[in-house]
C-alpha cells in the first residue's frame, strides 16, 4: 500500500497556501506597526530631546514646546489609578471567587462586570464628570481623573484577578483547609501568592489602558494646556494622550507633525516600560511561587 495521497491532489497545495495566508496576516499587522513607528520616529527626529522632556508646553514656538506637564501628569494619574483600582479590583475578585455563593445575585454582578469591561470609556468620562467633578465637587483635577480612569480599568482588574484565582488548583485550597487553615489564611497565604503573576499582568494591562485613555479625560474637562505641575490631588493637570491630541489640533504644522510625534514616542516608551515591568514582575513572582 502506498502512502501517496490519492484523490486529493490539491490537499498539499491548499495546506501550503493556507500557511502562507496566515503568515501574511501576521506579517501585515507587524508591517503596519513598523511603518507607523518609522513615520513617528522620522517626524520626531531632532524634536525629541532633553529640552522637550523638561519644558512646559509653549503656544508661541514649537521649538520651545515640551512634554513635562503631561509626563508628570500621566505618571501622577496612573499611580493614583493603580492605588484605587488594584485593592478594590482584587478585593472584588476575591469576594466573587471565594466568598459569594452561587446565586442569582452573583450571576448578575458577574455579568455586569463583564459588560462594564466593554463600555466605551467616554461613557465613564461623562459619569466621572457628573459624579466626581460636579457631584463631589472635586473639579477637573488629578483626583477626579484618577477616579474616572479607575472606573474604566476596574472591570479589567477584576476579570484578570478572577481568572488568576480560578487558575489556582483546587488541590491547593483543599490542602490548606485540611491543615486547619481558615478561609482568610488560605486566601492570604496560598491563593493570592499563587495568583499573583496573573493579577500583576492584569493590573499592568489595566494601567497601560489608563495611560492611553484620552476620551474620559476630555469628558471630565481636563486641560490640554498646562504651564505648571500639579502639586496637590485637586490641581488641574494634563496627560500625554490629551497633550498629543491638543498638539494635533494646532494650526501650525510643526506642532501637528513634529511636536505631536515626539509626544507619541514618549507615550510609547512609557507603555513599553510598563510592559517590560509586567514581564519582569511575572518572572519574579513566578519564580518565587515555583510551580
Amino acid at each position: 500500500m502506498s502512502l501517496a495521497s490519492r484523490g486529493r491532489p490539491y490537499a498539499k497545495a491548499a495546506s501550503a497556501a493556507f500557511a502562507y495566508v496566515c503568515a501574511l496576516c501576521a506579517f501585515a499587522s507587524v508591517a503596519i506597526l513598523v511603518v507607523l513607528l518609522w513615520q513617528m520616529c522620522r517626524f520626531a527626529w531632532g524634536w525629541l530631546d532633553w529640552q522637550f522632556l523638561t519644558s512646559f508646553d509653549s503656544l508661541l514656538s514649537p521649538q520651545k514646546a515640551g512634554v513635562k506637564a503631561a509626563l508628570v501628569g500621566s505618571l501622577y494619574l496612573i499611580s493614583l489609578t493603580a492605588l484605587f483600582s488594584v485593592p478594590v479590583g482584587v478585593g472584588a475578585a476575591v469576594y466573587l471567587e471565594e466568598y459569594a455563593q452561587r446565586s442569582r445575585w452573583r450571576g448578575f454582578v458577574q455579568t455586569n462586570i463583564a459588560n462594564l469591561a466593554g463600555v466605551p470609556s467616554i461613557v465613564y468620562g461623562i459619569l466621572g464628570l457628573g459624579l466626581f467633578v460636579r457631584g463631589m465637587k472635586l473639579g477637573a483635577g488629578v483626583l477626579a481623573g484618577a477616579l474616572t480612569l479607575s472606573l474604566v480599568v476596574l472591570p479589567i482588574v477584576i476579570l484578570a484577578s478572577q481568572e488568576a484565582l480560578r487558575a489556582v488548583p483546587a488541590s491547593i485550597r483543599q490542602a490548606s483547609f485540611a491543615l486547619g487553615a481558615t478561609k482568610w489564611q488560605t486566601i492570604w497565604h496560598q491563593l493570592l501568592p499563587a495568583a499573583m503573576p496573573g493579577i500583576m499582568t492584569g493590573v499592568i494591562l489595566a494601567i497601560s489602558r489608563a495611560l492611553g485613555e484620552a476620551a474620559p479625560l476630555v469628558a471630565i474637562g481636563a486641560a490640554g494646556f498646562v504651564m505648571f505641575l500639579p502639586a496637590g490631588v485637586n490641581d488641574r493637570f494634563t496627560a500625554l494622550p490629551l497633550q498629543i491630541y491638543n498638539w494635533t489640533e494646532n494650526a501650525d504644522e510643526q506642532y501637528q507633525f513634529h511636536v505631536a510625534a515626539a509626544g507619541i514616542i514618549v507615550l510609547l516608551a512609557m507603555l513599553i516600560c510598563l510592559n517590560a515591568a509586567a514581564v519582569y514582575l511575572r518572572y519574579r513572582f513566578g519564580r518565587r511561587i515555583r510551580w
Binding site: 491547593i172 483543599q174 490542602a175 496560598q190 499563587a194 511561587i289
Partner: peptide, 9 residues
C-alpha cells in the same frame, strides 16, 4: 490526598 499536592513553596 490521592495526588500529592505540595504548596508551590
Amino acid at each position: 490526598f490521592q495526588k500529592s499536592n505540595p504548596f508551590p513553596k
